[in-house]
Amino acid sequence: MDTVSANAAPARTGRSVADARLDARAFLGGLLPPVASEAADTVLLVVSELVTNALRHAGGTWALELTAHPDGIEVAVHDPSPQTPRLRNPDLNGGTGGFGWPLVTRLAYTTAVTPGPSGGKTVSALLPR
């Protein structure tokens, strides 16, 4: 029988995407059984995208929470903006983005946007383990 550690990283704030990636790497490194390299890369990519969105579109304040489930890793980013992510046409020439949210929704089993109690939101994605 496979066992899965049920670790949850408490919500932790940071200053940069690099902070979030370091926290995610540390979390993934502590899981048993270990997460496959490709799955870990996917988690790090989604963490990067969601935190970048919080920095760019939600005023720069964010908190990251990671949870291991038997069949996946949940990435949740809390931010103070009530505005939900939206699909927009990717900007191929101007560098204004539009690629992140479609990427997250394609990589995740499920995504959710939950309003926060103080007006913000939590954007979460359940990713393959």
Rank of each mutant, 00 (worst) to 15 (best):
Pro82Phe: 12
Pro85Thr: 05
Thr61Ala: 02
Ala63Arg: 05
Glu74Gln: 15
Val77Ser: 02
Val17Arg: 01
Thr3Val: 10
Val75Arg: 07
Ser5Arg: 06
Pro115Gln: 14
Ala6Pro: 03
Gly14Ser: 06
Ala76Lys: 08
Pro70Cys: 04
His57Ser: 01
Ala40Gln: 15
Val46Ala: 00
Thr13Lys: 09
Phe99Pro: 06
Ala11His: 00
Val123Ala: 04
Arg86Thr: 15
Ala11Gln: 10
Asp79Ser: 09
Arg129Asp: 15
Ala125Ile: 11
Thr122Cys: 10
Pro34Arg: 15
Ser48Val: 06
Asp19Ser: 07
His78Gln: 14
Thr67Arg: 11
Thr13Gly: 06
Leu127Gln: 00
Leu28Val: 08
Val104Phe: 09
Gly95Met: 10
Asn89Thr: 14
Leu22Gln: 09
Ser124Asn: 11
Thr61His: 05
Asn89Asp: 08
Val17Gln: 13
Pro10Cys: 10
Arg12Asp: 00
Ala112Pro: 03
Asp19Lys: 02
Thr111His: 14
Ala58Arg: 00
His69Thr: 15
Gly120Arg: 04
Pro10Val: 05
Thr105His: 09
Gly120His: 11
Arg129Gln: 07
Glu74Gly: 13
Val47Pro: 03
Leu87Lys: 02
Gly60Ser: 11
Leu32Asn: 14
Ala125Gln: 04
Met1Trp: 12
Asp79Trp: 02
Ala68Met: 09
Ala63Cys: 15
Pro128Val: 13
Pro33Ile: 03
Ser124Lys: 00
Thr67His: 06
Pro33Ala: 12
Leu127Thr: 08
Ala11Cys: 05
Ser48Ile: 05
Thr42Gly: 05
Ala108Cys: 12
Pro33Lys: 15
Leu87Asn: 08
Trp101Tyr: 08
Thr96Asp: 13
Met1Val: 10
Gly30Pro: 03
Glu74His: 14
Asp19His: 00
His57Glu: 06
